[in-house]
């Protein structure tokens, strides 16, 4: 699989990246997509290996991130899907794009709402992941407080509109949605120069 010039230009148009940056990200993609199965596609194990330095082990959040990258829902991440998703994490991507992406991450069951059970499930997963203990009482208190703040119509679930307002009030929630590295990918992956098709 190679990336043709027309593909690079199209991906640059569809994202926050320049053609050279798309080329540089292709170097990263090639590395990730051949780490376990050398087929030019990122499998979940390969993403897990890159993020956790181990190819095995369940992680709720990794599953959600992988699902959101995998636009075609065919169980692998193709290069264009990789570019589309990473573009959301670009420092210049809009706050709205980041807010929407975060909503989709947290909407575990993809019902169009972030439900109380989902928030509880995510908090419990982190407690388990980090070996932290929290009493059920305290957990309920934290979720109650969060919903009192976010769920303005008090229907027990957070809608897209409620989420927008909530994130506006708590912008630090989008901290993970920006990767400063993405402003500098051509420097981070200078080897793209050997394969470049264009000069930006």
């Amino acid at each position: 699989r190679t990336c043709q010039h027309a593909d690079l230009e199209r991906l640059a148009r569809e994202s926050q990246f320049s053609v050279n940056e798309v080329e540089a990200l292709y170097e990263l993609f090639k590395k990730l997509s051949c780490s376990i199965i050398d087929d030019g596609l990122i499998h979940k194990e390969e993403l897990r290996l890159a993020l956790f330095q181990a190819p095995y082990g369940e992680n709720l959040f990794l599953d959600r991130v992988f699902d959101l990258f995998d636009e075609k829902k065919n169980g692998v991440i193709e290069f264009e899907e990789f570019i589309h998703a990473l573009s959301v994490f670009h420092p210049y991507a809009s706050i709205q794009e980041k807010t929407d992406f975060a909503f989709r991450l947290y909407d575990l069951r993809q019902t169009g709402f972030i439900e109380r059970e989902e928030v509880q499930q995510m908090v419990s997963a982190i407690l388990l992941e980090s070996d932290m203990m929290l009493s059920d009482e305290l957990l309920t208190m934290i979720i109650d407080k969060t919903f009192a703040d976010a769920d303005s119509d008090k229907d027990g679930k957070i809608s897209k509109d409620e989420w927008n307002v909530y994130v506006h009030k708590h912008p630090s929630l989008l901290k993970n949605m920006t990767l400063p590295y993405l402003k500098d990918v051509t420097t981070a992956f200078p080897s793209f120069i050997f394969n470049t098709e264009v000069e930006d």
């Binding site: 990730l32 993020l51 991130v65 908090v123 934290i142 969060t146 630090s172 993970n176």
Partner: peptide
């Protein structure tokens, strides 16, 4: 410290932190 569940999720979940993709280059 964490009275906001989403604050807790976003700061504690390693699965949401994609920066290691670049750190492992």
């Amino acid at each position: 410290k964490f009275f906001n569940a989403f604050e807790f999720i976003s700061s504690m979940s390693s699965g949401f932190d994609l920066s290691s993709l670049f750190e492992s280059k």
